[in-house]
Nucleic acid binder design. Sequence first.
DNA 1: ATCCCGAGGG
DNA 2: CCCTCTGGAT
Length: 210
Amino acid sequence: MANDNEKLLSDDQAREVLKRIASMYPDAKGELKWDTVFHLLCAVLMSAQTTDKMVNSVTPKFYVDYPDSFALAAADITDIEDHIKTIGLYRTKAKHLKETAQIISSTYNGEVPKDKKKLVKLPGVGEKTANVVLAEAFGIPAIAVDTHVSRISKRFKIVGEKATPHQIEKRLEQLLPEQEWIHTHHAMILFGRYTMPARAKNKDPYSFLK
DNA sequence: ATCCCGAGGG
DNA sequence: CCCTCTGGAT
């Protein structure tokens, strides 16, 4: 086997790494622009495999033209596509946005459910998106495992190379007290985005810690 | 495992 | 040119 000599960090070692990352970004918070919970859901759905900067460049007009789930549910699919054409995966996202809006407007009376099981059933909404909505919009402790959280967890050997997003989420949640989940999650994203990007591959991960 | 998919950076 | 970006559905 090629990779079985990977030694994972102990719980204490992993907590120390997470603590240092968290302390490097004391004011870390989400960088997506949003006003209502429904719009946050739309923005997070759009953010798959796309920088939040790109998402923020299309959402202001999107929010004005589609003020709520009822408006988006009734919108023409090609019109939605035109609003988000500059971000990646735009056809899939437009389809999911409209279908999600239809469910929220008809089944939930226009209100985004505060419930992970219900959120995950929406088209285009997986565990990561659901966790972002729960944490950002409702302040419910959750750790959304995106590309940054995944990469950092693996690079520091907090989890194994083959760990799934769900396994990473459970591992991080087990290591940290609930009240630190949201902040640590944000700090890991900023650390991954600005301090230890994916390209910084052959460097010692610890050289990026303060 | 594969597809979706434009923009930005190196 | 190549790699990456707060993934999810099939």
